[in-house]
Design a protein around this nucleic acid. Structure first.
Lengths: 378, 378
DNA sequence: TTGAAAGCGCTAACAT
DNA sequence: ATGTTAGCGCTTTCAA
């Protein structure tokens, strides 16, 4: 990698000042056409690539939005790097040494895409659309302390998922750039928030279980995000109360263990008394529950119905397919960018809170009948 | 947003020089413990967040890797922002206005995650692991010209997908930072490459169709990436040749149209003579083919078998589930980061080419029997 | 229309 | 152990 070409080099070669070079790229119309041409030619010849760092420093904005995400626990081991020659020969058909297998159990879909990934995708779409780059970071093992400010320092606005950063750090960052907390019910911080109707969604799905499937003995199994879980549990209670069923005081918060692939899964005590329905705080938990129940030979949804919350892809792949409450994840990501943009262009704007609607998606695990196919009824 | 706090402010407040402040963050062990404390206290009090731009400028590296991805054609319209009050009240259970629906046809899984998304995810994992941030950009409508160099300028290494940037631009960037072309068979550029065994994979899946399902009249339907498609078509030819079947000279490259959701889908002429098997260049194409065939009431795999290439999630969700060649997408993303890191720390290292193995995944669309469930045989 | 020059905030010699 | 100082590459007045 040759030493970086700078405005100075381009200016010298073009026989103009660095100001002109800069101007040529930033406000072309203010530069004489002929000069512009010369500068461009020089830039091209020199393979000039402007430094975003320098630009960011100079004009105080980076043009990027940040997302501070989870540290996916998953440690997929690197594939044995098949030392590569320059591609397959052209004609002599190389012997086929490709593995062939029927699809077996596969945890891949449990690991990606998770709901954070879909929200991230929404942010990507919105960033592209508005000319921002998206910077993705997360708690790193390498430089645990550095990283926090490290990503905050290179973006004009930041989105964070719950439990990724201490509130102290967040408020510190929020003092410099706009910050929005995603999937964290609004609380008394000075942050913007994007959430969904956790309570209403859980209430609705619980009522479905009660009224459509006649379940009267239901339990709620908790998840990882305390705030959201609380809201969802409230919805669960709402439904039971409205149906005049016994209303539990607390959710069941099962212990977790780490699976072979590094994912953390919940456990249910062996002698666990089966209810008629298990309302789970997240799809992730619900999928674990489905696994456990299958292990124990329990018929789902016959003996016990199971529901989730989120709407991740894996829920459509498993059998029985998971009935759940779907969050509008793409739209959430877009809302995040929306808020960030607004506060970037008007720094005095107060923090904003957006609660998006959810919808209950009926599949098989609640007792509804399966459809012939996903796309076609045929 | 108050004016940014800088090292100068922290230094003044702590009663030390800016060098000490910098040192405190960069090499804490070289600063007396008591001083360190004072500096940290000042930084905290002032809510200091270091500027990555300035840092990047000063030490010539940004600590970020870039990914230049597609401009997803999808234009999901922003959700009607449900004007948000500060969360649901605590006790008076709010009326449930949540929509409930049985899952109908849903194109969502056709749009995300695509195989680019999974490769991206592999990069994310690897970046996290090695303390890099990942910067995601793509062709923007907003600043079409700017954006190219724009992202290149803020990262220490860049990955690009085929057809996203003109070779000219790529080589220009490659002159400054390491660049790896993903899913682009090695060619005569000066870039690093990460690909898979496109030819061998296609040959293997074609041979499965021939030998296990007795198909003798097969066609190959092309995709969008010319280079990969060529390699895959070669594999298709290899298989036919080895089986002494008639070997077509060219793939069928169907016209495309834009669907309601903004996705571009292929079309098949109405009077299209059905073969016994359709080997598609990508899962995306295969899924379109499945759609078209279903529309026309053709039995898959009974009348015609269909296969894909990539291993995207949607292929597991559709019925019949798609038999395909799976690329090790996560590992590809990791390989990309691997190469980039190597060339960043040793800029003189020559471009590197890595070809990863693929595996054929048998599901339903080839004629293999479905399994009872995805995770469990029960 | 173009040039000169003063930063932007931080790092890393080099001094002390 | 800490301070001084010279850049890093670019943008942007202000002059010419």
């Amino acid at each position: 990698m040759a030493k970086a070409v700078t405005v100075y080099d381009v200016a010298k070669r073009a026989g103009v000042s660095i100001a002109t070079v800069s101007m040529t790229f930033r406000r072309p119309e203010r530069v004489k056409a002929s000069t512009r041409e010369i500068v461009h030619a020089a830039a091209r010849a020199l393979r000039y690539v402007p430094s975003a760092s320098a630009r960011g420093l100079a004009d105080g904005r980076t043009g990027a939005l940040g997302l501070f995400s989870y540290d996916y626990l998953v440690r997929v081991e690197a594939a044995a790097p098949a030392g590569g020659g320059p591609g397959a020969g052209v004609d002599p058909a190389p012997p086929s040494t490709v593995a062939v297998e029927r699809e077996g159990p596969d945890e891949r879909c449990r690991e990606f895409p998770l709901y954070v990934d879909e929200i991230q995708h929404g942010m990507e779409l919105a960033c592209l659309e508005h000319g921002y780059a998206l910077m993705i970071g997360g708690p790193s093992h390498v430089s645990p302390s550095t990283t926090i400010a490290d990503i905050a320092g290179r973006v004009d606005g930041l989105a964070v998922f719950p439990q990724t950063l201490p509130t102290e750090a967040l408020e510190r960052i929020a003092g410099r750039i706009p910050v929005v907390a995603v999937s964290e019910p609004p609380c008394d911080d000075r942050l913007s928030h994007v959430t969904v109707d956790n309570r209403g969604g859980t209430r609705a799905i619980t009522e479905h279980l009660i009224h459509e499937h006649g379940r009267r003995n239901l339990i709620f199994v908790g998840g990882l995000n305390p705030a959201e879980q609380r809201a969802r549990f409230s919805g669960f209670q709402d439904a039971l109360r409205a149906a005049r069923l016994r209303v539990p005081r607390k959710p069941l918060v099962p212990p977790t263990r780490v699976t072979g692939t590094g994912r953390s899964a919940i456990e249910l005590p062996a002698g666990f008394p089966l209810p008629e329905a298990i309302v789970c705080a997240t799809d992730d938990v619900a999928l674990d529950v489905l696994d456990i129940l299958a292990d124990r030979g329990v018929d789902v949804p016959g003996r016990v119905a199971v529901t989730g919350f989120d709407g991740i892809a894996a829920g459509r792949i498993v059998r029985p397919a998971l009935t759940t409450v779907r969050q509008p994840m793409i739209e959430m990501g877009q809302a995040v960018v929306d808020i960030l943009r607004g506060r970037i262009e008007d720094p005095d704007r107060p923090p904003e809170v957006r609660e998006l609607p959810v919808r209950v998606v009926l599949r098989e695990s609640c007792g509804c009948r399966p459809r012939a196919g996903i796309w076609r009824a045929g």
